[in-house]
């Protein structure tokens, strides 16, 4: 069963893309001329991927892929932090979001000295912020801190 999981995901994705591509607008022949409709190229690519997925099944039947051990909480916790970063940035502030994620990530990965984790989480985003703001002239999205800083 395991041998079908990855090829199955590839095939399902390819079929989904083909379905979406088939819904794309058709361009008038006058514009397309001797070339191809915009939907053709992505469909062609996904057909190639379907063929490759079939090859992958054959390959996996000969030598099944090794069972991937489930990662620890550090890995999946970090993925969750990626997801949390989104609402924090949109609803509070990007710099605060970075600091929070950095602090929790330090702790999650095993840093038990809270003052070290806090220092890393505060100094790094602050240093990067000032570098980008003052030297590279990049404006960051509005939020709690940036509203106060930009005025």
């Amino acid at each position: 069963m395991r041998i079908f999981v990855i090829p199955g995901v590839v095939a399902a994705f390819s079929l989904a893309v083909i379905w979406v591509a088939l819904q794309l607008d058709v361009s008038p022949p006058l514009i397309v001329g001797d070339s191809m409709q915009p939907r053709v190229f992505p469909i062609l690519l996904m057909v190639i991927n379907l063929v490759l997925a079939a090859f992958l099944v054959i390959q996996y039947r000969k030598s099944p892929p090794p069972k991937v051990p489930w990662e620890g909480f550090q890995t999946w916790g970090s993925v969750v932090l990626f997801a949390i970063f989104f609402p924090l940035t949109v609803y509070i502030d990007m710099m605060i979001a970075i600091a929070v994620v950095m602090f929790v990530m330090c702790f999650l990965w095993g840093e038990r000295r809270l003052h070290v984790a806090a220092a890393v989480a505060v100094i790094t985003p602050a240093a990067i912020f000032f570098l980008f703001d003052l030297v590279l002239r990049v404006r960051f999205p509005r939020g709690l801190l940036t509203n106060w800083y930009y005025g």
Binding site: F85, T89, V90, M94, I98, V101, M102, F103, M105, C106, W109, G110, E111, V116, V120, A121, T124, P125, I128, F129, F132, L136, V138, R139, F140, P141
Partner: peptide
């Protein structure tokens, strides 16, 4: 220690992704 290094990489990565076109979508 990795627990110090990689959170710093995270900060550099998200700000780097944002900086090119000042777009949150890029993040």
């Amino acid at each position: 220690p990795l627990q110090i290094l990689w959170p710093i990489v995270f900060a550099l990565a998200v700000i780097g992704a944002y900086a090119l076109s000042s777009s949150l979508l890029d993040v």
